[in-house]
């Protein structure tokens, strides 16, 4: 076992892991954070998406040891003081979640995308195009919604930011 220390949703945390474990395994098993899921385990579906230092990655293919000293964000960290993140609210308002299996991953990819956009001086809503949203979410599969509602939700959230 190896000791691992990192920042998880804003808190400094410490845990013991096996060297071959993936980030997804330890988020679910050591921290009981069940938002990130294993869909394919192969980088195809995006259900396991979380952010490492603000970048969205597939936690099913990301060795847990690589987050030593780094900043990890999961869907559980999106709420702020009991209030939904604008993306979560927009997903609700637009019916962008049905069975919900893909939703945490979708939210995290959308967050990485909007956060990056926000560094641009123009207002986010002005510069977010539908084509860009589709490209940003290409690594997140959804078997229920047909994607339109998800794209609408991201557009709506962009207006909020």
């Amino acid at each position: 076992m190896t000791k691992l220390t990192f920042t998880l949703n804003g808190d400094q945390v410490e845990t013991w892991i096996e060297e071959h474990e993936m980030l997804l395994d330890i988020l679910r098993e050591n921290f009981n954070l069940l938002g990130a899921r294993e869909g394919c385990g192969m980088g195809e579906c995006g259900a396991c998406t979380v952010l490492v230092n603000g970048l969205n990655i597939n936690s099913c293919l990301f060795p847990a040891l690589e987050v030593e000293g780094q900043m990890v964000e999961t869907v559980e960290g999106l709420q702020n003081a009991g209030k939904f993140h604008p993306l979560q609210q927009a997903f609700l308002d637009n019916g962008a979640s049905q069975c919900g299996f893909c939703t945490p991953g979708m939210l995290m990819s959308a967050k990485a995308f909007l956060d990056e956009k926000q560094t641009n001086p123009k207002t986010v809503a002005e510069i977010v195009t539908e084509a860009e949203i589709k490209r940003a979410l290409a690594g997140n599969l959804c078997r229920c919604t047909g994607y339109f509602q998800i794209i609408d939700a991201v557009k709506a959230a962009a207006k909020e930011q």
Binding site: G43, L55, I57, F62, S109, A112, F113, A138, G139
Partner: peptide, 9 residues
């Protein structure tokens, strides 16, 4: 190439 998630790593 691939997805943003894969391109990030």
């Amino acid at each position: 190439m691939a997805s943003v998630q894969i391109r990030n790593v």
